[in-house]
Structures are given as structure tokens and as C-alpha cells.
């Protein structure tokens, strides 16, 4: 398996993949034309033809033996610079009267654009048949090496929005208790409209005033800042990388946005540059290895460690997958945080 930027030739394979993604992944709707544009934007992003405001990098996980695509992950260079980016900020309001001895803390939701300009990790999807081994980690974390390599293309703060709570039928308790009253449409439709990039309707329809969560259903309140059960591993993984929930949630399903300073991301901070050397895999921990190229970026997983002379051993298949020769410089980061 290796991670590489998506290419024009991947169109049909991407559509097949998107059909399996389900409504939670708003940025990967199975719409031929839109996915075609998505590929184009990604190609133009890697080539540097797009401004940061428009740049959106899409990576695919490729089975190097079969050539099949089994997953995607993306990076939006800077969200909200083209059209508004909305979150609810979960706040606290205190109502207190000494005279009658009352003290109340209420939770509030403020509609904000506070995460405007941040870099977003997005479009993570792994085909269910390949959810094993190191695939999930490779797919999600390999792009962090791209951030480490080319920080000038991204923002100082990186976020990821995690899928919120919904049931088997795709019903979100948060949506049912809040958004539905203002949009008068199903969650899946609102999610679709937002996913296809149309966000101006949000400003037009969302409540303009802060909302007290005391007026929401119990299930809705409990969903605030919580992830869908299928997203728990992704959350744990991001938290291990240094991402934290800071009180911003999705306006539709109240899933959390987690944040981290780019330079403080574990895989960025702990990554090192070293020389590749042809050799057998030695004992060691599983590492992400990237070829450090801006446009022909490739990442594979390899077991090993940096030896005393500052070199990392890769076998022929790995060198092939990275499209490098022994002696070329690589960037290495342990797949799992050490501690």
C-alpha cells in the first residue's frame, strides 16, 4: 500500500469508492461531475496553480500490487476564505442572583466563523474491506508528512471535523432537535447541500441568535462534541497526534472539530529527514516514510529505524513504491506516538 496524490486517471475508481462512503462524509458525495472537479482542484493544488484559499489536496491509498484505490484522505489548505465556514462554539452562560440565592450555568451555542483560515484534514475514507493492518494509520497520517514537508502551503492551525452522532437510519438527534426547525428538510439533504459546497444557505436559514442547549432534547445535548461510534478510532488517533477538542462543533450534527498547531502535531514534530539505504527490514517500529516530493509525493509504511549513520533501510519494493533510488532523502516518522 502507498499513499499518493490523486491523478486525472483516477476518476472512475474514485466514483466507485465514493459510492461506499455514506452520507457522513460530506466532502465525498458520489456525484460524477463534482468528483471530477475535486480531482482537478487537487491536481492544480499539488502543481501550485491554485491560491491557498482554493487549494484542496486529495490523496489516495493505492494497493501497489493490484493498482486498486482503497481509500482517500485530503487536506484543505485554508477553509472559509472563499465562502463562510461555520461552526457552533459551545459556550457557558451563568445566571446568578445573590438576592434569591440562585446560580445556574447554561450551555450556549454561538454560530461563529472562528475557524476561518485554518487548514482542514478532510475526506478520510477507507473501503471497509481494507480496514485492517496499518492501512487506516497510513491513510490518515501520511498526509501529516506533507504538512511537515511543506508548511508554507498551510496554516499555523490544523483542524479536523469529526462525524457526529447519528443512528442506523442516518438520523442525527442534534439535527432533529435544532437544525430541522430552521431548515425544514432532512439531515441527509442538508448534509448533501453543504457537502456539494453550497454554504450560503446556512447563513440564510440558521438561527442568528445564540441557542440555549437547555431547549434541545436530551439526546441532542448528549451529542454535542461527541463522535459517531464508527469515528471513535479516528478521534483517538487524532488525539494521540496532539489534536484537541476546543469547543467548536459542526452546525448540523454537533460532531467535534479537533485542533492542533501544525508544528505541534506529533507526526510533524517527531518526523526526521534522513538518507535511504537499500537493505533488509531490521527490527524496529512501523514508520511512515515519504519521498519529500511536492508533486509526486509518495508515502509507504516500513518497519525499521534510523541507524547510527542516520540512514533508514528500505527494500526494493518500498523504494519502487516511493519512486526513489537508494541514497535519496526521505522523511520518517514513527506511525505510533512513542511513550
Amino acid at each position: 500500500m502507498r499513499l499518493r496524490p490523486i491523478a486525472h486517471g483516477d476518476h472512475a475508481a474514485l466514483i466507485d469508492l465514493a459510492r461506499g462512503a455514506g452520507i457522513g462524509v460530506t466532502t465525498l458525495q458520489p456525484n460524477e461531475e463534482r468528483l471530477g472537479r475535486r480531482i482537478e482542484i487537487s491536481v492544480d493544488s499539488f502543481s501550485g496553480r491554485l491560491e491557498k484559499a482554493q487549494a484542496n489536496y486529495l490523496f489516495v491509498l493505492e494497493d501497489v500490487l493490484s493498482g486498486h484505490l482503497v481509500g482517500t484522505s485530503g487536506i484543505a489548505a485554508a477553509v472559509g476564505l472563499d465562502e463562510p465556514w461555520y461552526n457552533y462554539r459551545v459556550g457557558t452562560a451563568v445566571y446568578c442572583s445573590r438576592e434569591i440565592g440562585v446560580y445556574r450555568q447554561l450551555q450556549t451555542l454561538f454560530l461563529t466563523n472562528d475557524l476561518t483560515g485554518t487548514t482542514e484534514l478532510c475526506s478520510l475514507f477507507l473501503h471497509p474491506e481494507h480496514r485492517h493492518g496499518g492501512n487506516g494509520g497510513l491513510l490518515s497520517k501520511a498526509r501529516l508528512l506533507y504538512l511537515a514537508e511543506f508548511p508554507e502551503r498551510f496554516s499555523a492551525k490544523v483542524i479536523a471535523e469529526l462525524r457526529g452522532v447519528s443512528d442506523e437510519q442516518g438520523r442525527s438527534p442534534f439535527w432533529d432537535s435544532l437544525g430541522r426547525h430552521f431548515f425544514r428538510m432532512d439531515f441527509s439533504r442538508a448534509d448533501y447541500l453543504s457537502g456539494v459546497g453550497n454554504k450560503s444557505f446556512i447563513a440564510e436559514l440558521m438561527p442568528q441568535h445564540p441557542v440555549y442547549t437547555a431547549f434541545l432534547s436530551e439526546a441532542a445535548r448528549q451529542a454535542i462534541g461527541e463522535v459517531h461510534s464508527s469515528t471513535r478510532p479516528a478521534r483517538a488517533m487524532l488525539e494521540a497526534e496532539g489534536f484537541n477538542y476546543q469547543g467548536y462543533v459542526d452546525i448540523f450534527d454537533a460532531g467535534p472539530a479537533v485542533e492542533c498547531a501544525l508544528e505541534a502535531i506529533r507526526a510533524v514534530r517527531d518526523s526526521v529527514v534522513c538518507e535511504s539505504v537499500a537493505g533488509e527490514q531490521v527490527e524496529g517500529s512501523l514508520c511512515l516514510v515519504s519521498n519529500r516530493r511536492l508533486q509526486e509525493f509518495r508515502v509507504v509504511l516500513a518497519r525499521g529505524g534510523v541507524d547510527d549513520s542516520g540512514r533508514f533501510a528500505l527494500d526494493a519494493a518500498q523504494l519502487d513504491a516511493l519512486e526513489i533510488s537508494a541514497g535519496d532523502s526521505v522523511r520518517i516518522a514513527p506511525l505510533q506516538p512513542i511513550r
Binding site: Y95, V102, T108, H181, F182, Y212, F215
Partner: peptide
């Protein structure tokens, strides 16, 4: 001191 500062959305 105790009244809600923000408007109440009746549909909720």
C-alpha cells in the same frame, strides 16, 4: 440577573 439575554426560539 436571571432572564435570558438571547431570544428564545419558540419552535424549540
Amino acid at each position: 440577573e436571571l432572564l435570558p439575554q438571547h431570544p428564545i426560539y419558540v419552535p424549540l
